[in-house]
Design a protein around this nucleic acid. Structure first.
Length: 163
DNA sequence: AAGGCAACCAACCGCTCTGTC
DNA sequence: TGACAGAGCGGTTGGTTGCCT
C-alpha cells in the first residue's frame, strides 16, 4: 500500500491543508469563487485563505462535482458505453479527451466507469457465471440502459473513424 | 439477520505539460 | 534557454451501498 497520508482529513503534518470529503460550506465558497473569477486561479483560493484546500483539490472538486452541466447520478447509457469503448480503442486511456465526447461526463467518470468495467470483464473471463447485480439505480431520472449485461461482446464493435 | 462480495463513487498522489519570467 | 509555478491528466485507493447467499 502507498502511504497516503490522509484521506479523511487525517495526517496533520500539513495542518494548513484540509483533505478528505468536501463540506457544503466549502462547495459554496468554491462556487462563489468560480462565479467571480471563472474556473481558474485555483491556487488563489488557498493563497487568499478562502479555503484550506490546494488548488488541485479545488479544481478537481469543481470539475467532477460542482460544474453545472454534469450528469450527476446517472449511470452510463448503452450509447455512452459504446462511445467510451470506441474512443478508448482509438485514443487509449486519454480519459479527459474521451470525456469531451460525452457531454456531462468528466474524465473521472469515464475512468471510473472503465475501471469497473475492466474488473468485471476480468472476472467474467475467469468465472463465466457472474453474480447478478441490478445495481444502485441511482435516482434514475435518466434512462440508464443495462449496459452491464453484455460487456464482452462490445469490445469487438466497429470503431468510429475520427481521423 | 448477518456477512461477503461486487459495483459505484469521491478524492488523493505523482507525473507531465504549459506558460511566464 | 533554462528554471519555476500553476494547471491538467492518469492511476490508484478507500469508503459506501446494495444484492446475494
Amino acid at each position: 500500500m502507498k502511504p497516503r497520508g490522509g484521506r479523511g482529513g487525517g495526517g496533520g503534518e500539513q495542518p494548513a491543508v484540509r483533505k478528505g470529503p468536501w463540506t457544503a460550506e466549502e462547495d459554496e465558497v468554491l462556487v462563489r469563487h468560480v462565479r467571480e473569477h471563472g474556473p481558474r486561479e485555483w491556487s488563489f483560493i488557498r493563497s487568499k485563505g478562502l479555503l484550506p484546500r490546494t488548488g488541485k483539490s479545488c479544481r478537481l472538486r469543481w470539475v467532477n462535482k460542482l460544474r453545472p452541466d454534469l450528469k450527476t447520478g446517472c449511470k452510463f447509457s448503452a450509447e455512452e458505453e459504446r462511445v467510451v469503448i470506441d474512443l478508448q480503442a482509438q485514443f487509449g486511456n486519454r480519459w479527459a479527451r474521451i470525456a469531451t465526447y460525452l457531454p456531462g461526463r468528466t474524465d473521472n467518470d469515464v475512468k471510473n466507469f472503465w475501471s469497473t468495467r475492466q474488473k468485471r470483464l476480468a472476472r467474467l473471463l475467469r468465472a463465466p457465471v457472474p453474480r447478478r447485480r441490478p445495481g444502485k439505480q441511482s435516482s434514475s431520472a435518466c434512462s440508464s440502459s443495462r449496459a452491464h449485461e453484455l460487456p464482452t461482446q462490445k469490445l469487438k464493435l466497429n470503431r468510429f473513424d475520427f481521423d
